[in-house]
């Protein structure tokens, strides 16, 4: 969807900024908000660009830099940690050859360590874009990554 179409759905009030940013980002293939987007939002809501950047840089789900097609977020909080999330993360590092915050050269995957996904009852957990995967084992992770790669081919 074009940015103008997205903007026109919202009243010209700055309280909708976060909702607007989330929608623009989710319509972007690379999960980010570009400087052109920021300029358009600034004009539409009549707020300074610095205010938009301030919001974008505050919230971890918003990004001003392009990411991979699949953003893999692995939970690393205590309930997952004591259920061996480290082996999950290491498996991903091993398979993707990237570390926390990095993107694969083919722009397919971005790997991130994230905060609690609220799935502690099925720890360890990770999220790929909006899809949550739970009760993970290195084997399960291997299959998930392979499936995602296959989808692309």
């Amino acid at each position: 969807m074009k940015i103008k179409e997205i903007l026109s759905k919202y009243p010209k009030e700055s309280e909708y900024l976060i909702e607007i940013l989330l929608e623009i980002q989710s319509s972007s293939k690379n999960h980010y908000i570009s400087s052109e987007d920021v300029e358009q939002i600034s004009k539409y809501l009549d707020i300074p660009e610095s205010q938009i950047c301030s919001v974008t840089s505050f919230y971890t789900l918003l990004s001003m830099n392009p990411k991979g097609r699949y953003v893999i977020q692995v939970c690393h909080d205590v309930p997952c940690f004591v259920n061996d999330t480290t082996s999950i993360y290491e498996k991903l590092v091993d398979m993707l050859a990237i570390e926390d915050g990095e993107t694969t050269e083919d722009n397919l995957f971005t790997l991130e360590i994230t905060e609690c996904l609220g799935c502690c009852n099925e720890a360890p957990a990770m999220r790929v874009n909006d899809q949550v995967y739970t009760s993970l084992t290195p084997k399960k992770v291997e299959k998930i990554v392979k499936d995602l790669r296959g989808e692309e081919k």
Partner: peptide, 26 residues
């Protein structure tokens, strides 16, 4: 419905209010 965008502190009352107003959750 208002959607959070990745911030733990927004669970705090006033931070949430700021976030509902479209600002960083401080």
């Amino acid at each position: 419905i208002r959607t959070g965008a990745g911030s733990y502190v927004v669970g705090e009352e006033f931070s949430m209010i700021e976030s509902i107003e479209g600002k960083p959750g401080r």
